[in-house]
Design a protein around this nucleic acid. Structure first.
Lengths: 246, 246
DNA sequence: TGGGTTTCTCAGGGAAATCACAGCTTGGGG
DNA sequence: CCCCAAGCTGTGATTTCCCTGAGAAACCCA
């Protein structure tokens, strides 16, 4: 089930209308806090743990609908944690956090069961999107909630990553896609460059703030090219997307 | 929940009808006093602190609905304060104050959880508007309070930054927008040039006082152009806005 | 390993916004 | 009715913000 909040954002809810519950497990406090903050903002209920034992215990009493699990924990390795989690909650979907250079094939085996993973450093937009996907597919939230965002004649499918405007397919790079998704999830709302950076770029990005301008310019070339523009600049405030007419 | 005060201003209240509580943290006394005065004028309850430890303690006993937090404190850095605040009040929204040139610095991730920031030197109108936004979105105040100001056939949307009169969209610059917002939040009330300067321009503005006249003139051109005027001059007193009829 | 793709930095150009200045208009008191 | 203070607005300088081309570096896939 989804509802639309007063801010116009679409929230994911469980069938009984209560908020989705997510357990976040990471030993770095800054990461759990960053994630907790961002996921709470999605309207979800969050519990966090800093090690494997804490995770197992929290899972038992909190009974989350999904788990975000760092593969690198101080007390036990990710696989053992996963095993124990599964003993209590056999069907809970797990989003793994792994270091960039971690052995990918081991993860590949794990995600076969419908789980997913992102590599550190991640962007919040990516984590949120993948969690939404996991929860949606697990059936914890209403299945009818679908994965296509629509603004005017522009559509974006979060599952297939397909983007169309006026029926024409548009190819976007990964970053362009995430930026557009963020804009489309907040239609008609001015988003500041800082907000966009925080959300779409990874948390350790230390570069120039004008990447946002650059990618807005890329998006315009692909989406607004020769049509009524949908992406608008609010000088001194930020950017927003809205249907071309009106 | 919102109520309309005898003066005609719209106030933000908590669901139980008690005033919103805001904690202000800054080491410069002039800043905390400036903010406290302005925020009290909004009808909110204010407590202030001059350093990180004071902030954490005050948060614990005062339990604010929102926090204004300077990133540059003498005893601990902004992120540590944030972490400790969050331990006691996981969902409290925070408005960060940062130096203009430290913007790139490390805002990353801060606005991701729905928090926001303004750069020093700020204008009071900006701080108040952003605080209202944070409180509104956090759910501490009634969610029905929405983001659109209406005076006669003139509307101003604080989220999309859209302004219309009689249905026609009107493009305003950032300063024009803030000036109009201030007028519209105080309809039918005479606002002196000094008041306007104090509210809409940043506290270190050292320019000529006639910027107010200039911007009023800009606004008239865009809003009153060829229609029944809504912006009126009270010679020797100030300006006011009111619906065109009557 | 190598070529195509993607991400990002840097820097120049240009447009918009802000503001100072000055001359002009207006309104009200005497 | 005159005059002056208060307010209005045209002009243009300055600043700030945004856009985008070019190319370097990183990445990915075969």
């Amino acid at each position: 089930m989804t509802t639309t909040s007063p801010q116009g954002r679409t929230e994911l809810l469980r069938p009984d209308g209560s908020p989705v519950r997510v357990l976040v497990v990471d030993d770095e406090l800054s990461i759990t806090e960053l994630l907790s903050m961002a996921l709470r903002y999605e309207g979800w209920q969050i519990r966090s743990a800093g090690d494997g034992h804490g995770a197992v215990q929290a899972a038992r009493e909190f009974r989350p609908d999904a788990v975000v699990l760092d593969m690198m924990l101080p007390d036990m390795d990710g696989l053992s944690v996963l095993g124990r989690l599964r003993r209590d909650l056999p069907d809970v979907p797990v989003l793994f956090l792994t270091a960039k250079d971690a052995v990918e094939d081991r993860i590949a085996g794990l995600t076969a069961g419908g789980d997913d993973y992102v590599t550190k450093p991640f962007s919040l937009e990516e984590v949120v999107a993948r969690l939404r996907g996991l929860i949606r597919r697990s059936g914890a939230a209403d299945r009818r909630s679908d994965s296509v965002l629509v603004v005017g004649d522009l559509t974006l499918d979060e599952d297939s990553h397909e983007v169309t405007r006026g029926g024409d397919g548009i190819h976007l790079t990964a970053t362009e896609f995430e930026l557009l998704r963020f804009l489309m999830r907040n239609p008609r709302r001015v988003l500041s460059k800082a907000q966009i950076l925080d959300r779409v770029w990874s948390y350790d990005f230390g570069g120039q703030a004008n990447v946002v301008e650059l990618y807005i310019s890329y998006l315009r070339r692909k989406i607004d090219a020769g049509r009524e523009p949908m992406i608008h600049t609010r000088r001194g405030a930020g950017y927003l997307i809205k249907p071309a007419v009106s």
